[in-house]
């Protein structure tokens, strides 16, 4: 039986000048999976991620999403197809309120909002849904504060709520645990697992224990190429992976 892949790349490559950051990557993400992209520093994870989210244009190769070729689609365009990314540095809108942060995403439902002549009161219809989403990530009490006042972990939670507001089919998370303490890591892990119900998640992550707990499938990149793929047990037992990770914090 053929597998159902939501996202698939074919020969995806990117070079900067003469440097090949990503070479010939055939990445396949199964629908409904929590898939991790890991690898030592400089393996090309972030480049790969930026290619998938269209923040970079590939030198060669194709990207298929939901059976559609998205190689030439803009980064705003893929969000409209239900493929939404997060950022390594927590990506909130600092001087909007927590509620407004989520509402800006909900606002997408009404189109592109070029109506500069209408009062923003028309957006109040989204407040209830926004509060619901904030409640899911435990931020309902902070709705009226500026996002800049939140702690780092809470900003990440807000970012997740904003992403979920778009009801994405697939979320691309760029190091969701970067720079976090233990408590926050547990919190966000739980949130991601909850959010992943009925969705596909592809995440770049450094923290291997997070990946071991959270992810169904792992792709290891090294020097811009796929080194190994499989579940955590398979990948962590692979001698090539161990070699690539020596001295790089392999647990």
């Amino acid at each position: 039986m053929p597998e159902d892949y939501i996202l698939a790349t074919e020969g995806l490559s990117k070079s900067f000048g003469g440097f090949n950051a990503v070479t010939d990557v055939d990445l396949k993400v199964r629908r409904g999976a929590i898939h991790a992209l890991i690898g030592p520093n400089g393996a090309g994870k972030t480049t790969c991620f930026n290619l998938l989210t269209k923040f970079l244009v590939p030198t060669a190769g194709r990207i298929q999403y939901n059976g559609r070729d998205i190689t030439r689609v803009s980064s705003a365009g893929i969000a409209q197809f239900g493929l939404v990314r997060s950022f390594q540095i927590s990506a909130v809108f600092p001087h909007l309120t927590v509620l407004e942060n989520v509402r800006v995403a909900l606002q997408r439902q009404r189109g592109f909002s070029f109506d500069f002549w209408r009062s923003e009161k028309v957006l109040r219809g989204y407040d209830a849904r926004a509060l619901e989403l904030l409640d899911e990530v435990g931020l309902a009490g902070d709705a009226d504060r500026n996002a800049s006042e939140l702690s780092y972990g809470r900003k990440r939670a807000l970012e997740l709520a904003t992403t979920l507001a778009l009801e994405p089919d697939m979320m691309l998370l760029d190091e969701p645990m970067a720079g976090m303490g233990h408590e926050d890591i547990d919190r966000i892990s739980t949130l991601i697992r909850k959010a992943a119900a009925g969705r596909t998640v592809l995440m770049v992550e450094h923290n291997l224990s997070v990946v071991a707990n959270l992810c169904d499938r792992i792709t290891v990149l090294a020097r811009g190429r796929i080194l190994a793929e499989g579940d955590y047990a398979t990948v962590s037992g692979d001698p090539r992976v161990i070699e690539a990770y020596i001295g790089a914090g392999h647990a």
């Binding site: 997060s86 909130v92 809108f93 001087h95 606002q107 923003e120 957006l123």
Partner: peptide, 26 residues
């Protein structure tokens, strides 16, 4: 009115964090 319109909200979001606003589909 422009500042406090649905358009103004998106505009402020772009000012605050352009890549994020793009990733939301704007």
């Amino acid at each position: 009115r422009i500042i406090h319109s649905p358009f103004g909200q998106v505009l402020k979001a772009i000012r605050e964090n352009e890549p994020r606003a793009i990733s939301l589909g704007y």
